[in-house]
Design a protein around this nucleic acid. Sequence first.
DNA 1: TATCAAATCCGAAACGTTTCGGGTAATAGA
DNA 2: TCTATTACCCGAAACGTTTCGGATTTGATA
Lengths: 345, 345
Amino acid sequence: MVTLKDISKATGVSVTQVSRALGGHGDVNAATREKVVEAAARLGYRPNAIAKGLKTGQTGFVAMVIPSDIDASGREIMFDMVVGISQAVSRHGLKFLLHVVDTAAQVPAAYDLLFQGGGIDGFILTDLHEPDPRVAYLQDRNMPFVVHGQYPERSHAFVDLDNFRVGEVLAGWLLDAGHRRILFLNGHDDRIYSSTRVAGVQHAFAVRGLNPGALDVAHGPMTRARGRDAALERLRRPDRPTAIVAGNMMLARGVWDAAAECGLRIPDDLSVTAHDDVLAQYPASGFDPIPSVTRSALPTAWAALADTVSRTIAGGEPEREIELLVPETVPGMSVAPPPSDESRG
Amino acid sequence: MVTLKDISKATGVSVTQVSRALGGHGDVNAATREKVVEAAARLGYRPNAIAKGLKTGQTGFVAMVIPSDIDASGREIMFDMVVGISQAVSRHGLKFLLHVVDTAAQVPAAYDLLFQGGGIDGFILTDLHEPDPRVAYLQDRNMPFVVHGQYPERSHAFVDLDNFRVGEVLAGWLLDAGHRRILFLNGHDDRIYSSTRVAGVQHAFAVRGLNPGALDVAHGPMTRARGRDAALERLRRPDRPTAIVAGNMMLARGVWDAAAECGLRIPDDLSVTAHDDVLAQYPASGFDPIPSVTRSALPTAWAALADTVSRTIAGGEPEREIELLVPETVPGMSVAPPPSDESRG
DNA sequence: TATCAAATCCGAAACGTTTCGGGTAATAGA
DNA sequence: TCTATTACCCGAAACGTTTCGGATTTGATA
């Protein structure tokens, strides 16, 4: 292994100056710097990450701890997320560490293990629950972390989609077309994004002077099968909803399935809006008609997450490092006025 | 952060002895050790992983580099693999590092980046191709690594399923029942396990004095859809196979689909054997009739991988650290003699 | 009592880096 | 000529750990 000392010997420049030259600090003559850089390249020098870490207290590792007992709907996208975040983090010259524990209860202990050993610069958290002990735990111990999602207090660094706006837009389209009996196929009820979206939907009712009494929110896993089942159950009722908001494209696909089974045409008999995460697994193509969606690429969020974690580690103030992503609104052909016999109901 | 020096001050024992006492070395009085251990616990001492790493040259990090451009069938199980390996590695007190690069071509550069920085003790490789540049690359540079799968030379540490035996058993059952026209639904043709299984199947023919001329090997992704399509195409030929070997349970499911579509009963009209990886995603339940399988839990292989990497890092000789897992053979009800009108064909 | 071995201990160096606190030489200004 | 400033440089300390080599104490033996 070639060290600074080797370069020092080879060039006759002191270790101090070699370090400065390579580190890009001032205080070193241009000619000297060039000589050092050349020698480093020639000898194949690579800085020793451990030694640097010992001195600076930073290792360039960003960790994410996940429990292995997540449910199937979480698994589906978890791999894309892990891959996406890992890639984004790599692009910042940081290294991504995935630590898997058996159950969610073991997560905090894993934070201790990784952080106190001194090997980790910061953590990334996703899939916030309500309440979620992880945030307070990390804040109490002064460990740097960034969250995908947010706590209402916003006292931590985070990146999040504007879920309030998602709910507002998706419901707004339907309300403006005249729908009142609306079904909202949402995610798990203990997820913060779920309740935020509900708030957005309710706000859409409120600003139009409408009572959201006829809003039916169905919480659960965001899968095609659940979307179909939940939609089917409602569509078979006499006072069936005339419109459905689907939380993601898989739920939307389930809605299309259910409509087909009931013989309902979209949008003539049933209007649908949905949120599109732009994931390869959840393609927005192949729908007929083209759905009206809010769109925000999850990979964009992951990249933003990496930006934020990089800045936070570098010493940014956590409360300042926040980013709220605004979804695109992409009207399609899946919204129409409610069928006349229904709108009177 | 509490260090050895703090414990030294608190106990009046030298840093040297504190280190030895905690490290479990001899050369330290029982009473002293007890005093030190007590103080360490009381002060909440946690060894600094970076400092230890600087001195010992080991960090406890095991890395896996994967390209993000793997195909869909690979993705399906990749997450389970990553989780399984990460968990297994954690249990050995090692930490798992996942590094994602864009394309397979960038993998070796990532090895350099991670290893030369001095932060990584060893690598885990999976999904071996033929040829695979990674093995030679790592061997040339003397980086410790363990492979899930094996190169024929066996000059490296590895854990692998005995795929030869898998092919031998699955084909043997069918041959012994009298089948001759056999379709083997295999994995991608550039994967080493695929060719090893083919060799096993051919060996099953050979030991019975049979010519494997009527063996039809179909290579491709190991998905349900591909299993169905490939099986269907063959089953509709006049000289259709009377038996099928499925490389995993998803392919098997596709075969069941195809048989149903063709109106063929299993095992009366069509015999099937398969290999079961015992993955939650690829359940072996819900088949009628119960298939005859070779069975080897992939999670077991991942655990063995962690054992092996742990020993290799600790200084084991790579060539010695090998483990060939023997599959269980679990006969079911999916094999019968070929239908009489077919067996003459 | 002198000698030796075993048990126990400790100082100091080392791992490779960064950085603090000067130091020297050249130049500019008085 | 003297002083102040600038540009460049270097030694040494420090991060927290492990470990080499030797020192000290103890107890037994001659």
